[in-house]
Nucleic acid binder design. Structure first.
Lengths: 334, 334
DNA sequence: CTGAAAGCGCTTACAG
DNA sequence: CTGAAAGCGCTTACAG
């Protein structure tokens, strides 16, 4: 049925060792042998069986991509951030380097039980993980000796197999808040989902620094759940308490907040300032357009993917820590 | 290094055949044997090597998911539709049935050259494909004898290995347009991206039917590229030509159109009617909220995934053709 | 109820 | 420059 290396060997009149060498570009062989093998492989429509190759080389050309999940597990639907990460990682790992991605996106509680086993079962060559995870899970992950690149993870333990790619979240929070201050808003809230995570804490710190600098009192609002829905609910609270502006720690919260405010007839921008964080597409798609912090998510994903590739190919050491710059993008909501 | 079936066999004092039988739940064995094997496997931390299993069973527990790509290959970033499909497919195939997804999302031109080879190399157990593809590619795909489920594909050739899941696109176009007619708009345009695709033609036909019924003249606008950007440009044309409303064949085009209109100061809803198609999240996130056609994308993806599973497990025949109903969701833009 | 043997398709030392 | 042999980790007839 399937065309194997033996079939090609027969057709080319050589051994399967030679076929393997030619197709893998290893060892020595004459030009004629090479041409004969390539011609035979093409004629028969030979395609290597990656599972068989994986068994002998112990390399699967599979990368595990771990994404955190929301309550309803619809990670991609509810967060543009992960979409961009997936697109950028895919463009580097699959389209450039011919690795396939295995997506691990299971509800939080089950991660410990399932993902680690699944990683072993699929024998992945490396791991890309976004966000924070429970410590025991990270310890097991580190113990696998696998190359791991972490995006937006601040839990810097002594994990020698991990490399980190982060953005300058503290500065982002600062720039966002300072912009609101400069625009003349005074009663400025911070709105977040999962504020107690290390990532959101960084953005929170930036907010606090700017508020302190301005001599204003800080107010933090936090919720769990779907970011857009949280934003909608913040609109009610903020309006009731006469706030003038808000820094939202992610764009989708800001989008929900803007939507809620507009619904109440509040003129977002002139009457109520909003700054988001991410600079995802949706910020340009709503009206008024969202002022936000650009963290260049696509480049972040690319960088993480390239770092992982280099570690796998032994071109670079594990354990690097990279912090990418952020910038303020002024549009219409503040 | 790695714990194998042999290690477990030794520890349990049985043969590896028995280990395989117990762990696979096949064959006969005594209760004591079973307990001994399970205890040994657990103690040693045994995890099966899926590549080895695949080699012998010729089943990979891998499903290929083929998505069309836009010019910039950022499929997920630019279209909520694919996000929902991925989430729904993942929830059924991975979380329920323990299959992993291999994502094939390559630029259109290269599909023929790369994807078919890659499918063979990974030895996937089945294919889920969204959208239309070139005929030679489909022929090769059909020739593989693999179970294939197609979403939103209207090219009904004699492909015996394909099953189809579609929505009632013609009715959707009709409902959208009739709603605009009933609301009193008269000069109603159709705005689309890739209007010549069979899918968009169906929606177009529904539009035509409703326009004919009302005795109105039809006007179709078409563009290629990113849907949101196309929508923005449609706003200029439609405004210049004094149109009163538009049916957009997908939500992202509608979002762009609404955005462009608002930018020109047009009061969307009262002064200019817009109806989209998809009912993706963003329709509820913009202001005014989008009136649209709900095609229940999540359920569509689930249905396609379950159909594929059943075919793989020989519980159902290949070649089914399912058309899911659509409905009008009235919100603020018309 | 249990085990010895064969084999899936490939690559990697090794010998010539 | 080329090939015979071993082996990756697993499952599946088959024999007892």
């Amino acid at each position: 049925m399937r065309v194997t290396v033996i079939d090609v060997a027969k057709a080319a009149g050589v051994s399967r060792t030679t076929v393997s060498n030619v197709l893998g570009g290893k060892g020595n062989y004459s030009d004629e042998t090479r041409d004969a093998v390539i011609a035979a492989a093409k004629k028969l429509g030979y395609k290597p069986n990656l599972a068989a190759r994986s068994l002998i080389t112990n390399r699967s050309r599979l990368i595990g991509l771990i994404l955190p999940s929301y309550v309803d597990t619809n990670t991609l639907t509810n967060s543009p951030f992960y979409n961009i990460i997936m697109d950028s990682v895919y463009s580097v790992l699959r389209l450039e380097a011919y690795y396939d991605l295995i997506l691990f996106s299971v509800p939080y509680k089950e991660i410990l039980l399932q993902v680690n086993d699944w990683i072993d079962a699929r024998n992945v060559d490396g791991i890309l993980a976004v966000g924070e995870y429970e410590r025991p899970f990270m310890q097991e992950l580190n113990a696998k000796q696998l190359p791991v690149v972490l995006i937006d993870n601040y839990a810097h333990d002594n994990f020698v197999n991990f490399s980190y790619v982060n953005s300058d979240d503290e500065t982002g929070g600062y720039l966002a808040t300072r912009h609101l201050v400069e625009k003349g808003y005074q009663k400025i809230a911070l709105c977040s989902v999962e504020l107690d995570s290390p990532l959101m804490q960084k953005r929170y710190q930036g907010y606090k620094r700017a508020m302190k600098e301005a001599g204003y009192k800080e107010h933090a609002f936090d919720k769990t759940g779907i970011p857009f829905e949280a934003g909608l609910q913040f609109a009610d609270s903020l309006s009731a308490q006469q706030f003038e502006a808000a820094f939202c720690t992610e764009d989708m919260v800001a989008v929900g907040l803007v939507h809620g405010m507009l619904k109440m007839g509040v003129q977002v921008g002139p009457k109520f300032g909003v700054v988001g964080f991410d600079n995802s597409n949706i910020g340009r798609q709503i009206s008024p357009e969202l002022t936000t912090i650009d963290q260049n998510i696509f480049e972040k994903g690319e960088t993480a993917a390239r770092t992982l590739l280099k570690i796998i190919n032994n071109q670079v050491q594990r354990g690097s820590r990279l912090i990418l710059p952020v910038s303020l993008v002024v549009r219409e909501t503040a």
